[in-house]
């Protein structure tokens, strides 16, 4: 199994039988964040990026052309939870970049704090992502907006934040969980409705459903 650079900046891949695996270069060698595999190589230590635990990784495995992030990017990450995906974003953007990791739950923020203390490019914020007025006092504009919040009004939250914090020509990634918008409706119908809401304000450049990695989820990529 050889690890080679993928077409996504700073993300590496390897073919393991029929399975494709993703890796990022570990910024804190020797430390795993959520029990993932660490693979030391002469180029540095690679950390496996588990698609079952990360919507961004599933999006890449489903054939994404890019995720808008690269070395030095600033990222606004809404719904960071315990920091599984944030840790890989932190690897991607490197020391020059920074990621604002926002979540509303003090319980998941505990793990996030421990992670942020180890990684100098993570800025943890305990706040409701809907209250952009409060966020405006804590962060600056970002190159990329990533959102995964499982709220009923997740599209409204995304649009508000994109409007205020996303730089011109910045990229936005919205992970939609159909089940948290309406448990009874068909996911496809919900995705269609979301598409309409997004199109009114921004340009959609990519759309992928995330099964089999995540059930009833999809990812929209937009450009401001």
């Amino acid at each position: 199994m050889t690890i080679t650079p993928s077409r996504i900046f700073e993300v590496h891949e390897a073919q393991d039988g029929r399975k494709r695996r993703l890796y990022t270069l570990n910024a804190v060698p020797g430390t795993a964040v959520y029990g993932e595999m660490l693979i030391p190589t002469p180029r540095g230590e690679f950390r496996e990026w588990n698609a079952g635990k990360s919507k961004l990784a599933s999006y890449i495995l489903k054939g994404a052309q890019g995720i808008g992030m690269r070395k030095g990017s600033s990222v606004l990450y809404l719904g960071c939870a315990t920091g599984t995906t944030v840790s890989h974003v932190s690897d991607i953007i490197g020391e020059e970049g920074m990621v604002f990791a926002v979540d509303i739950s003090p319980i998941v923020m505990r793990d996030m704090l421990f992670l942020a203390e180890k990684r100098g490019n993570i800025i943890p914020i305990l706040e409701n992502a809907f209250h952009v007025d409060r966020l405006a006092k804590r962060i600056s504009a970002a190159d990329v907006l990533f959102q995964d919040v499982a709220q009923r009004n997740q599209v409204e939250i995304f649009l508000r934040n994109a409007d205020l914090f996303l730089k011109d020509r910045g990229y936005g990634l919205l992970a939609v969980k159909a089940r948290s918008i309406d448990v009874a409706a068909k996911p496809r119908d919900i995705f269609k409705a979301v598409r309409k809401q997004l199109e009114a304000k921004m340009t959609i450049i990519d759309y992928r459903e995330l099964d089999p990695f995540q059930k009833d989820h999809c990812m929209f990529m937009v450009k401001k």
Partner: peptide, 25 residues
């Protein structure tokens, strides 16, 4: 916010937010 994005020193921004979030938690 776009105007100050490049002006705020990252270290200070991170330290202030880290302290604030520790307090909030």
């Amino acid at each position: 916010l776009a105007a100050i994005a490049s002006k705020i020193p990252k270290g200070g921004l991170r330290a202030a937010n880290l302290a604030r979030t520790r307090h909030d938690v």
